[in-house]
């Protein structure tokens, strides 16, 4: 890595030992970060404030007016959250969402990691063609796939009197939803993971091969630990997408009280004409809680040095 020699930076370069925190920026960095964060937070703040305001106020005054008298207790309420949590079958819907989201996150990661490794470090015929097909599939709008898949689930596919896809009555099962979500998540997963895994230094893989390790061992012992940040990043996206998805779960699992997922249950609150603003905002925050928890718990994997440490270890 060559760096052109430049006039010495104005600020003195602090000398620090390895393993210390990354050096922090000056005021410019702090202010710039703060500005972006504040801009990004304004819309969310609107929802948050609205979710704690009584219905009558939500419909008649702007949410920012609440900030004028923040200590006036009459303008705050927890009623919206109570109503949203009281939705019929909330617990069942939450459970359904979990049962859909966890496997639908892990399965595509597992499948994609193997494929991404193969695309990155294995030689085989049709490699480019297969990879380009996968990237191309990113653009397929899943709406176009729903009806063909639903037909497969219900009737199977018969070619010349043989089932090429058996009639398994998958509609309305968790398995049916997982498979659909896995398929819709795979192109991005493979694409992201291939980019990451492919950019790992070839030296470590070559030295492992010299040591006699086969591909499976390299993958399992070396690549997976090294790819934790990328795996965590994709896990977050896939979990979010599945958790917030409405269409796929509705189509393949159904909209009845026992089968519906959280997004569907909460959407009922909104009303077709969207009149229940106060409930909608509360519902939005309730359904955000778990994905944010996932984000926070996985964020520890995005730390500098993790990769380097693993390489040395």
């Amino acid at each position: 890595m060559s760096v052109t020699t430049a006039p010495p930076a104005a600020e003195p370069i602090p000398v620090r030992g390895k393993g210390l925190e990354p050096r922090t920026g000056g005021w410019f960095v702090r202010i710039a970060v703060l500005v972006i964060v504040v801009i990004w937070m304004i819309p969310t703040a609107g929802v948050l404030i609205t979710s704690f305001r009584p219905e009558a106020l939500v419909d008649t005054t702007g949410w920012w007016t609440a900030l004028a008298h923040p200590f006036e207790t009459s303008q705050w309420t927890l009623e919206n959250y109570r109503l949203a949590l009281d939705t019929g079958g909330f617990a069942s819907a939450f459970l359904n969402s979990l049962a859909v989201a966890i496997p639908a996150t892990v399965i595509p990661i597992a499948i994609a990691a193997f494929a991404a490794y193969a695309f990155s470090w294995m030689e085989f015929r049709g490699r480019y063609l297969m990879f380009i097909a996968v990237v191309g599939l990113l653009v397929v709008p899943l709406q176009m796939a729903l009806i063909p898949i639903l037909r497969l689930y219900n009737e199977g596919a018969i070619v010349a009197n043989y089932y090429v896809f058996p009639d398994l009555d998958l509609n309305g099962t968790f398995l049916g939803v997982w498979l659909a979500h896995t398929a819709f998540g795979l192109p991005l997963a493979i694409y992201l993971l291939r980019n990451y895994i492919g950019s790992l230094p070839s030296s470590i893989i070559e030295s492992a091969r010299i040591d006699g390790a086969d591909h499976f061992t390299i993958f399992w012992r070396l690549i997976i630990p090294l790819s934790v940040p990328a795996l965590a990043a994709f896990a977050i996206f896939q979990f979010l997408w599945v958790w917030n998805d409405l269409l796929v779960a509705y189509v393949f699992l159904g909209g009845s009280r026992e089968t519906r997922v959280l997004t569907l249950a909460l959407q009922g609150l909104v009303g077709r004409e969207g009149e229940n603003w106060h409930l909608l905002t509360a519902a939005a925050f309730i359904s955000m809680a778990l994905p944010l928890l996932v984000f926070f718990s996985l964020q520890k994997y995005f730390v500098r040095g993790l990769t380097a440490g693993a390489v040395k270890g």
Binding site: F237, L240, V270, A284, Q299
Partner: peptide, 18 residues
Amino acid sequence: KSLIFLPMAISFAGASAT
């Protein structure tokens, strides 16, 4: 980073309300 990330966690209905 979490605060920038936050909008990604919002469901679509939530975002349209936002």
